[in-house]
Computed example of a mutant assay.
Amino acid sequence: MSHSEDEDQDDAALFRAAIGEVKPIRQPQAVAPQKPRPRPRARMAERDEAEAHGEFARLLRDSAPLEAGDTASYRREQLPARLFQRLRKGQFSVQDELDLHGATAAQAEAMLRQFLLEAHAHEFGCVRIIHGKGMQSDGGVPVLKNLVDRLLRQRNDVLAFHSAPAAQGGTGALLVLLARK
């Protein structure tokens, strides 16, 4: 053994003595990439929608339908009467509108639900829903008018609605006052 080999072994021995006992590092096992988490869902809102849908079908069966010229009107108790009077007179600025003319009942229901979700997301206070008077409805009962009336009554985000003044659509449209977030 040469002199430099002795020094190398001494250096290695000195190093081991200086650092003490060591434990080998375990190699981490390969980790599979995790799938991205699903987007959160508004489960309570979905449940409310499902309950409202069942409730709507029952209401449509159990109550007398609105006729073409009938005024549709609804107010939650917590809404002050003076605000409801302003709504009846068309004194609120309409921030968006949905026209349901030509839609089937199923299409109208889906469109209305989506419209209200978007109106709520934009924090609109007053919207107009044009359902038509229902003069061409089978059997003379205005399907869309009754659908909209019953559906709006079931929604917690609807404070009040009333048939629009004649200049804004009359009994063929509703002004709807929405609750803010």
Rank of each mutant, 00 (worst) to 15 (best):
D96G: 15
H53Y: 13
V143D: 13
G132Y: 06
D62H: 14
S2L: 03
G172T: 02
C126F: 11
K181F: 06
E51M: 11
Q78K: 14
D149L: 03
G54M: 08
C126W: 13
C126L: 10
A68M: 06
H53T: 03
H3R: 06
D96L: 14
A57H: 12
A160R: 02
D138Y: 06
V158N: 03
V31Y: 07
F84L: 03
V176H: 07
K23D: 10
L59I: 01
A119N: 06
V94C: 15
L112A: 13
A45N: 04
L60G: 05
S73K: 12
P65V: 13
H53N: 08
L116N: 07
Y74P: 02
S4R: 09
F92H: 14
D10A: 12
K23C: 09
A72F: 03
P80G: 04
R150N: 05
F84T: 02
R43L: 15
Q78G: 12
R43Q: 06
A121K: 14
F161N: 03
P40V: 09
F92R: 04
D99C: 15
A42M: 07
A32Y: 07
K89T: 03
V158E: 01
G102I: 15
T71S: 11
M1R: 00
S63M: 14
R47M: 14
L60E: 12
P40R: 01
Q168A: 13
F115N: 07
D96F: 13
Q9A: 11
P40Q: 04
A106P: 02
Q154P: 00
T71L: 15
L116P: 09
T71G: 08
A164E: 05
L60C: 13
A32Q: 12
D8H: 05
V148P: 01
P80F: 11
P24L: 14
E5S: 13
S163E: 01
E77S: 15
H131V: 08
Q114I: 02
F84V: 06
R47F: 12
I25H: 12
T104I: 10
S63E: 12
R76C: 06
Q34C: 10
Q107N: 04
R128T: 11
A12I: 10
A68R: 01
V94R: 11
P65L: 14
H3T: 03
R155W: 02
S2R: 04
L116E: 05
R16E: 09
G140Q: 13
S137A: 15
L79I: 05
V158Y: 03
D157N: 02
D11L: 13
P165K: 06
A110K: 10
D99R: 11
G134W: 04
D157G: 00
R180C: 05
G140M: 13
E49Q: 14
L100D: 14
Q29I: 10
G69I: 01
D157S: 00
E118A: 12
D10Y: 07
Q154E: 07
G90Y: 04
A18Y: 01
P65C: 11
E77F: 12
V148N: 04
I25G: 09
L66W: 03
L98S: 14
A32K: 11
R88F: 01
I19N: 03
E97W: 14
